[in-house]
Write a protein that binds this DNA or RNA. Sequence first.
DNA 1: GTCATTGTCAACCGTCTGGTTGATAACGCT
DNA 2: AGCGTTATCAACCAGACGGTTGACAATGAC
Lengths: 121, 121
Amino acid sequence: MVDEVTEQLNRAFAALADPTRRDLVARLAGADATVGELAQPYGMSLQAVSKHVKVLEEAGLVVRSKEAQRRPVHLDAEVFDLMTKWIERYRREAEQRYQRLDAVLDRMAVSEGDTSEDQTS
Amino acid sequence: MVDEVTEQLNRAFAALADPTRRDLVARLAGADATVGELAQPYGMSLQAVSKHVKVLEEAGLVVRSKEAQRRPVHLDAEVFDLMTKWIERYRREAEQRYQRLDAVLDRMAVSEGDTSEDQTS
DNA sequence: GTCATTGTCAACCGTCTGGTTGATAACGCT
DNA sequence: AGCGTTATCAACCAGACGGTTGACAATGAC
């Protein structure tokens, strides 16, 4: 295995990059639904929606429970955690760095007359 | 315009679906860097990395300031907010619904002796 | 001016993606 | 058993994606 979390994130971000799939997620957040119900509002074949659901499923964002010939689709929020944690981590780092930059600029303002060029960092 | 936020999210999620680009973001969270510096660790041409940076830029995740012939790349955390807000909204909805389901199951457990089959919901 | 450095642009290539249509499977109903 | 409903599978297609190589633009250094 190359890295399970990496592949999970690949699939999850890719899944949510499609607006139709984000809309599916949005609707499934409100209530479970069958593929047929989900397909209703879009000008798109049932097969296309079925494929979208499959992508969401492989990304772990959704589970399908087999119930007769219907397969109600249910949103599984767990992978969302993984995504928000990844995003938040780097957002926070970047913000902290931004604030450190502010501090540096403040210090530079104090020792303003320093025109030597030897700090390459 | 079809919907600016939608397109923004399309680009942002798609950008982060690639592990190389997530790694770029991770490194840029620590410090700004030039395309050349960024390209170092990967077994990949400079042009390929340049393309990745371009994708990140068009997703609004990164800005490039022109400074001589170098173009230091800087992480812009703002779009991250949009993504986390989107994710968190539906995660929360789904969780609330999950808890309502629990409540329903509790009520069903109370009226347990009811063996009539007519509630189809 | 000439040269080295840094990076982008353009064309190409194989693969993945998002859609289509047609056939088929699985189940409930009568 | 036969039919209708629900959904998946398979083949196909156009376009996007991630990489390559080669040419070129822009700037700093000599």
